[in-house]
Design a protein around this nucleic acid. Sequence first.
RNA 1: GCGGGCGUGGCGGAAUUGGUAGACGCGCCGGGUUUAGGUCCCGGUGAGGCGACUCAUGGAGGUUCGAGUCCUCUCGCCCGCACCA
Length: 829
Amino acid sequence: EWADSRLYSVAEDPARPKYYVLEMFPYPSGDIHMGHVRNYTIGDVLARHLTMRGFNVLHPIGWDSFGLPAENAAIKNATHPATWTYANIEKQTESFKRMGFSYDWDRKVVSSDVDYYRWGQWIFLKFWERGLVERKSSPVNWCPSCKTVLANEQVLGDGECWRCHSHVEKRELEQWYFKITEYAQELLDDLDTMTGWPERVKTMQANWIGRSEGAEVQFQVCDAAGEPRDETITVFTTRPDTLFGCSFFLLAPEHPLVREFVAGTEYEAAVNAVVAGAARETAVERSMGEREKNGAFTGRYVVNPVNGEKVPVWVSDYVLMDYGTGAVMAVPCGDQRDFEFARKYGLPIPPVVVPEDDDELLNELAGVRERLRADVPWECAYDGPGIMVQSGEFTGMPGGKASEGMRAVTEWLRERGQGDFSINFRLRDWLISRQRYWGNPIPAIHCPVCGLVPVPEKDLPVELPRDVDVTKGETLADHPEFYETTCPKCGTAARRETDTMDTFTCSSWYYIRYADARNEEAIWDKAKADYWLPVDQYIGGIEHAILHLLYSRFFTKVFRDMGICEFGEPFTNLLTQGMVKMDGEVMSKSKGNVVAPEDMIAKYGCDALRAYILFMAPPDKDLEWSYEGLDGMYRWLGRVWRLVDESAEEVAGGCGVAASGDEAAKSLHREMHRVIGKVTGDIGSFQLNTSIAAMMELTNAAYDYRKSVPAGSRDLALVRDVAQTHTLLLAPYVPHMAEELWSAVLGHEGSVHRVPWPAYDASAAAADVVQMAVQVNGKVRGKIQVEVTLAEEDVIAAALTEVASWVEGKDVKKVLVVPGKLVSVVVAG
RNA sequence: GCGGGCGUGGCGGAAUUGGUAGACGCGCCGGGUUUAGGUCCCGGUGAGGCGACUCAUGGAGGUUCGAGUCCUCUCGCCCGCACCA
């Protein structure tokens, strides 16, 4: 009923501070589950609370409605992805309304609506203008089950597709990319400024971006006869200080030079065997931890720039084509992998950086510049800091990561044009094209004359045609009426791109669109975006720690550089909520341990469900489902209802005193203010479980008052105050019940959700008599009740009397007083 | 291997950040109202001991008048990344 009254629609308002609460928008995959309930309840409590506190709160909702599950479900149910998607959105909308979430429905966005995705196409064009779009051929992740390519971020650690868990294959394909790597450094640097994000998420992003500092080194290539050619191969290394220890050189099996080097030589067969072996191994085997390293000599040599030595070029399966340059200088004394490879194939392992405490080896090689020893006397590689030996003019310098030796060698290379300082990232460009129907069409045209041509802005949107039958396995590539077009530049017959964009492109900017969701002229009005954004509190699952959250940060930075917003980070505070589990396992249909929210709403009402799911665990921790716990929550809410109801009746009947001022009343009044303070503080720090516990304490205190003071002599002003305050405190958590209590029981006009939050009075919460513990040598031996105003010496006197039997006949060394807490007596003897 | 996190009653979880460990709830035990049961109300509930007391926050040390909290070592569990040169 609130949704219809537009109680939660908001507009920009300079008079009040703004606050933007956002939960990650759902994928419309069917009925809502407990994870949704938890996610959206946490956000709703915060939004309602802050509204009562006087903030201008934006709390929107929408659906991330493009994507593969819709196609799979459509195939299964012999329907259209759109039918399935929009039916689920309807269903989820009803559930959300039943849960009482305070959304501004006027701002709803649905990513499969053309009003929304046309701006996604606009973003694509703008990125293209800025040089952030690239179409290139490279080995990509291909999911044979989903029949599409995947981004690196969408391949799980064990080499499985993030959606269907099939083994992902590598294929060489031409695809569309967003150049997120251009922002790698900034995405990494800004993590340090994000104090409102969990350490865990920031660490995961930093590891994913994976910055390494080092150097590029150029090795001159020798021809088949062993004579240096006018051609170089560049490698990246984090340890240029070990360059003198490079005793062989490695190429990845996929490296283009491998074929050229061995074609028609005696080495071809052995090398091909290694290449074929590596190709057979998918990401699955590659992730099996310590693996036997295989390799073969290519018959070629490269020249080590620091000493002119010719080192053999090998191919090996432990070198990755997509990191660095796909070529590696092997320094077996300082790298465990190189060490193992050298041992296996009998290659030399000359020491070049020796730990400072290895006196024997250091003495032997002290001051030695040329190679004296071809092998280390060690059983494994040493990669820590140490002294450089056998290293020409650098001998004797400190070596190691970020060492003086590393800088000196790099400088030396730079002067000769054979290398330079360099930084390498693990982050790869974001592959955004998908060979599937249910997505946002990429606005590009392949012209036989002009090549790749962007769809002109005036021709947007490229509408996704409805009449594609996914149940027959069709995609846009099966529909000539879609792809047959003419080049916007030259008018020649041309082919429209038939790939669609990764759904993560849709979710990378929706949070800004909410600021101006109905804008048909522009993606958003800049002033509106800058008013509402960044999101003050973002709430969602940890599974998006890298994917969605990294992509969104990237988009925001590009938007800022485009000048369409001022902010460079989208989410100021991030809460990653825990999962809802049953018997220690995540609820899932396949495990059959799902508790349906709708069933619980039917039995207990949504208020009890909301309060329960918040009470059972802190929001960021996993929550173990318990039906008994939900029973308990239902009981408490009944208790509160009766309390407020009886109080209202009593006040209306006038049976009592106006204001008693007795000890019981003072104590209840104090408790009420303590709880206001506790609840207010706990919501702010997301300790929603303890804020509910505090409200339970207020309920208990109110009942204690009723027990200890007979009807007729109760303080009616206080009774009324407690009933009203209790109702207001409850309002964000149990909005329906609080509304009923407020209007029907307490007889107020208007919504409880528009009443100001109860003011916390710290002095009213302060007790005038406190209990203090008395410790003797650190152990609690007694307790005393004292007036808070009592002078310290009197407190000590009272304390010593209390523990007289423990102090008697002993020497009191020291007495410490922690005001309001305890007295600590130290005795000897 | 690298990185992040966690470990407190029968259970979920509190603990003002170094100050009375176990708030609040569940469960359990006892009692009451009503009674056909449930709802509801009251009391109890870390372990040991008749007791004064003693022992308790994964384990072992340490700092301190005082440690769940800080330091060192150690065990166990969860999550992320992983042949990243």
